[in-house]
């Protein structure tokens, strides 16, 4: 299907605006009852090969005991993997740590991003605005491996530039990544640094979707700043903002490389997020069976969250548009 759709594209691209329906396959694909399927087919094929098959594989394997390094074939074990994961206290610790991380990271990024976005709104006369925005967005494009390693240096109590500042203020050096009580905050700060710009971007987009006429009308009506914000800005920009929050939440839930390169999940388990323990169990311990089960659990959590989020988002949307 994908091939034929692409072939269609290829043949047609050689023509100019075609007059009348084409012939043969092209005509067939162009028929109203076939066209939608033909257009969606390539994406569906991608989806089936790279998502459905692996997910089913994952699901199947999660019922087996299978270690890549044991040299033994998988052994069916029913729900053993699931019960042992759920009975393992460390899973729950990792999950709650991840939950706190997601809430804090996304919360801070959203609030900071929104206010910075408001700040940059209407900065059209800023000299070098394009450069300034590019610099602001730069953290998003740094390779996580490099960002993590360099932040380790910046945070270092002996060589780090941050601790040099702290020490030159006469304060004792902070062991950002090696003190169990500080490390979580330190890695969180790096995530905030990296992804607040994304929320700034989403805020700018959200603000741009607010019709200027309505804002002007609000000004004429002498609405207070808060009223304008709530009735006009939020009303129009909400959808994009919420989408930004959704994307960030999904990504924060998956955070791995960045933290792995800074602390390896340590000290102790202070920064061990669930994605890190999953990676460990899959590609350090090579326990494919129980890792699959954990992966399935995580997938269910993500799906449940996203479904709820979208449901609420659309429900609100419908309600507001009804009103």
């Amino acid at each position: 299907m994908a091939g034929s759709a692409e072939a269609t594209a290829a043949t047609s691209s050689r023509r100019t605006l075609a007059r009348g329906p084409g012939r043969g396959l092209l005509a067939f694909l162009g028929r109203r009852e076939v066209l939608p399927t033909a257009l969606i087919a390539p994406v569906l094929i991608f989806f089936i090969i790279w998502n459905t098959i692996p997910t089913l594989w994952l699901l199947g394997l999660s019922f087996y005991r299978f270690s890549l390094t044991s040299g033994r074939p998988p052994i069916y074990s029913g729900f053993y993997n699931y019960t042992s994961i759920l009975n393992d206290t460390s899973t729950w610790f990792d999950l709650s740590r991840t939950f706190i991380f997601v809430v804090l990271a996304v919360g801070i990024e959203t609030v900071a991003g929104f206010f910075l976005g408001l700040l940059f709104w209407g900065s059209n006369r800023l000299p070098g605005r394009r450069v300034a925005l590019t610099l602001l967005f730069a953290p998003m494009v740094v390779t996580p491996v490099a960002a993590g390693t360099f932040w380790r240096l910046i945070y270092d109590p002996t060589f780090g530039v941050l601790n040099w500042f702290i020490r030159s203020l006469g304060l004792p050096a902070v062991r950002f990544l090696s003190d169990a009580s500080v490390a979580f905050g330190a890695v969180l700060a790096v995530d905030v640094w990296m992804w607040t710009p994304f929320m700034v971007l989403m805020t700018l987009a959200a603000l741009a979707s607010v019709p200027k006429a309505e804002l002007e009308a609000a000004e004429i009506d002498r609405l207070t700043w808060f009223q304008r914000f709530r009735l006009v800005i939020l009303y129009h920009g909400k959808f994009i903002l919420m989408l930004g929050i959704l994307l960030r939440t999904i990504d924060a839930f998956k955070t791995m490389d960045l933290i792995f390169d800074m602390t390896f999940g340590g000290p102790g388990t202070a920064t061990q997020l669930i994605a890190i323990s999953l990676f460990r169990s899959a590609f350090e311990s090579f326990n494919m069976g129980s890792s699959s089960a954990l992966a399935v659990v995580l997938l269910l959590i993500s799906i449940a969250f996203t479904a709820t989020f979208l449901y609420v988002l659309y429900l609100r949307e419908r309600r507001t548009s009804d009103a």
């Binding site: 004792p172 062991r175 990544l177 090696s178």
Partner: peptide, 9 residues
Amino acid sequence: KYQPPGATN
């Protein structure tokens, strides 16, 4: 005790 701060890393 006798190591630089952050030696646990």
